[in-house]
Amino acid sequence: MTEELILTAYDPEFDFRSLPKVSLHDHLDGGLRPATIVELAAEVGHELPTTDPVALGEWFRASADSGSLERYLETFDHTLAVMQTREALIRVAREFVQDLADDGVIYGEVRWAPEQHLSRGLSLDDVVEAVQQGLTEGVEAVKETGRPIQVGQLITAMRHADRGVEIAELALRHRSRGVVGFDIAGAEAGFPPARLKEAFDLLAQNMFPTTVHAGEAAGLDSIVDAIVTGRAQRLGHGVRIAEDIEIEFGGTDDDGQDVDEDTGLVTLGPVANWVRDRGIALEICPSSNLQTGATAEFGEGIESHPIDLLYQTGFTVTISPDNRLMSGTTLSDEFELLVEAFDYDLDDLLEFTLNAAEAAFLPLEERELLVEYINDAYAELGDEDDEEYEDGEDQD
């Protein structure tokens, strides 16, 4: 009888949607259905590149696949344009939850910037309440099908704007009504977290959790500022922490023994040590990182992504899709991509998922229940594998 979970090697027939998942880095305005965009655009008179849903989805993916974060962010002009009314926000949020559930997500945090949804007269509180209504409707619809799901809002402030305190106050007003955390997003280079120091101070004074986009379009200084100024408990992407890791092949180890030339000695710098040793979770979004060029200095293609280095050296790695529309992906797709590239098995995917569950902005008791549910679900997969193995032996 095998003690390993199934999927010990890449299996194109395996349904990754069957795995329970936790999604921590998932943008509301980056997860719309193309058909919904077409319908909402017609209602408000917004011109799209095409009104064919399939072609529109392809346009988003092609436009985002530029290797530039700035170009990637331009694609949001169209999604934001159709998310300016209460009805539209409710619909988009409801469908967002349903799509998460269809992908096997049992807990998700949806991040979005309320300040970007005010062009048709809604207030900041109006838009947060509309999104929460949509999320609640989506959760109820999913539960009616017998599937569990829980979703919380991450209120995001745009780092290039000057509304940090106002958005922080908004998040605090809604903290007991669906909002679980705070984030800053937008163009990272040139707009450090220190610009929003007053907002982060306010959140810290009120014991409110933060995650900060850092280590994506900017390097170690951005990560340090996210930790020091932003008091970040998680890093949005954070992949460029790998710039503070050195690998030396050959040489001698700490005991003076010769090291094989194919074996690398890994040395962590002070920033990498701090992030790893304190378990600051990295919200890694592999496909998005390739699209925006966040990992370009490490090489081309998923095989050069530093995620495996970070995972093997003990960082708290979590996996998320970032923007499912722009990247043409789901969390299941991200899992499959990593399994194919790095020969991960279900034990590895379980660890990524448990890391995410333990890093979720939930009370301890709820995180423990989430971890228990995930472990039980994976254990059932192992039991099914054992039964299949035994059946095969009997037939032999």
Rank of each mutant, 00 (worst) to 15 (best):
residue 96 F to M: 06
residue 78 H to T: 13
residue 146 G to W: 08
residue 148 P to D: 04
residue 61 R to W: 06
residue 87 E to D: 15
residue 171 A to Y: 01
residue 57 G to Y: 04
residue 168 A to K: 02
residue 140 E to P: 01
residue 104 G to T: 05
residue 115 E to F: 13
residue 87 E to M: 10
residue 157 A to N: 14
residue 135 L to M: 12
residue 89 L to T: 05
residue 75 T to C: 14
residue 162 D to V: 13
residue 111 R to T: 11
residue 76 F to N: 02
residue 81 A to T: 11
residue 154 L to Y: 07
residue 111 R to A: 12
residue 95 E to D: 11
residue 58 E to L: 09
residue 163 R to A: 15
residue 160 H to K: 12
residue 137 E to G: 08
residue 120 R to G: 08
residue 159 R to Q: 08
residue 116 Q to K: 15
residue 113 A to H: 04
residue 151 V to K: 00
residue 109 E to W: 00
residue 157 A to V: 13
residue 79 T to A: 08
residue 63 S to R: 15
residue 101 A to W: 01
residue 97 V to R: 01
residue 126 D to C: 08
residue 165 V to F: 09
residue 173 R to Y: 06
residue 112 W to V: 09
residue 147 R to M: 09
residue 136 T to N: 11
residue 119 S to N: 14
residue 68 S to T: 07
residue 121 G to R: 08
residue 153 Q to E: 10
residue 52 D to H: 04
residue 60 F to R: 05
residue 108 G to V: 01
residue 74 E to G: 10
residue 176 S to Y: 09
residue 165 V to R: 10
residue 106 I to N: 00
residue 89 L to M: 10
residue 80 L to Q: 11
residue 161 A to P: 04
residue 136 T to K: 10
residue 155 I to D: 03
residue 89 L to W: 02
residue 70 E to T: 13
residue 175 R to E: 01
residue 69 L to E: 03
residue 110 V to K: 06
residue 82 V to S: 01
residue 81 A to H: 06
residue 130 A to N: 04
residue 63 S to Q: 15
residue 76 F to C: 07
residue 87 E to F: 05
residue 104 G to D: 03
residue 167 I to W: 08
residue 93 A to M: 03
residue 175 R to A: 06
residue 151 V to D: 00
residue 118 L to N: 07
residue 104 G to V: 03
residue 126 D to E: 12
residue 57 G to A: 12
residue 112 W to F: 15
residue 73 L to S: 10
residue 53 P to E: 10
residue 128 V to E: 05
residue 165 V to P: 06
residue 166 E to W: 09
residue 101 A to I: 10
residue 118 L to V: 09
